[in-house]
């Protein structure tokens, strides 16, 4: 009975962790899928989003008015801030090494330049946060992160499954954002222009699409998603300037697992990693849970090198 209870509880943990990982992967996949930019600073953009959410929750939203919803509203308010930040980053920096301005460079040169640029950006964001905010961790203290909805298992008087309130609400928000984003990319005019710019930028220009602007919007969207994921994460996970490093590896594994550039694939890639990370603890020692991720990762790539959705959806 104890195993059933533990298995179900671990599944719940895997789903909630997987949703956050999924959203983080979606942001990264969007940038890669549309701009072909490998953004090593994505984890650090998440870190910026975490700090912005704490700032908004502490100084902008009066807790007396919004109550327990304060952290979630703060996370949503991170979106416009990070969108503008991402747009400016792309306009001023990223566009120099990607898209039309890099058209004169060979593909290899452009890739190397943007790789170094994103690595440099990651270092600037980490060390900038260190100088400005110090090395002390910061967090939001929400009663929701230490309370749960308890569902009795009815097998005995003791066994129950706990749905952590903060993580459950976060998981729902992550799924909603991913669905809305997918709809936005597929159905709206801006979304179609982004896909056109991704598929064939030259043809897109002939069709009257502003490809540079499309790239800036894609990067801004990816940044905003990293920001909101950070805003949701900081409700229960403390932030310090180097927190992004722990997550960026997971993000890349998720994106590759899902199929490079596929938004749907990225979400499922992130979800798979969350599930494997938590469910593996049922069979192997807990200290090997991150090893289990990469064993499964290698196994999946061995039998399906293009990832889950690599063939069916090549680009966003």
């Amino acid at each position: 009975m104890i195993f059933v209870e533990q298995a179900l509880q671990t599944l719940v943990a895997g789903l909630s962790v997987g949703c956050i990982y999924g959203l983080l992967c979606v942001g990264l996949a969007l940038i890669f899928g549309i701009m072909r930019v490998i953004n090593f600073a994505q984890g650090d953009l998440m870190m910026v989003g975490m700090y912005v959410a704490i700032f908004v929750a502490s100084f902008v939203l009066p807790p007396a008015v919004f109550g327990v919803a304060t952290p979630f509203i703060a996370a949503l308010l991170v979106v416009p801030v990070m969108f503008i930040f991402g747009y400016l980053l792309s306009w001023v920096l990223i566009s120099r090494t990607a898209g039309l301005k890099a058209a004169s460079l060979t593909e290899g040169d452009a890739h190397q330049a943007q790789l170094i640029l994103s690595l440099g950006l990651a270092l600037i964001l980490q060390n900038g946060a260190h100088i400005l905010l110090g090395s002390s961790p910061a967090a939001m203290i929400s009663p929701l992160s230490s309370s749960a909805w308890e569902v009795p298992l009815l097998i005995d008087d003791f066994s129950a499954i706990f749905f952590n309130k903060a993580r459950t609400v976060n998981a729902v928000i992550c799924v909603v954002i991913s669905v809305v984003l997918f709809w936005f990319i597929q159905k709206t005019r801006i979304g179609k222009s982004l896909r056109a710019a991704a598929s064939n930028s030259e043809a897109a220009i002939y069709m009257g699409i502003n490809v540079s602007k499309a790239h800036n919007i894609a990067f801004a969207l990816g940044t905003a998603i990293a920001g909101i994921a950070g805003g949701l994460l900081v409700i229960y996970y403390p932030v310090q300037p180097h927190v992004g490093v722990d997550f960026v590896i997971i993000m890349y594994a998720g994106v590759v697992l899902g199929g490079m550039g596929s938004i749907v694939g990225a979400f499922w890639g992130g979800m798979t990693i969350g599930l494997v990370q938590q469910l593996s603890t049922l069979f192997v020692p807990i200290q090997l849970q991150n090893t289990a991720i990469f064993v499964v990762f290698l196994f999946v790539l061995l039998i399906k090198p293009e990832g889950f959705f690599g063939r069916t959806v090549e680009r966003a």
Partner: peptide, 20 residues
């Protein structure tokens, strides 16, 4: 007796075993 590799993404599986 549970040992994990830091940092944890979720302390659920560990603390659930303590509860059991």
């Amino acid at each position: 007796d549970e040992t994990f590799t830091p940092p944890l993404a979720d302390a659920g599986p560990v603390m659930q075993r303590v509860r059991a």
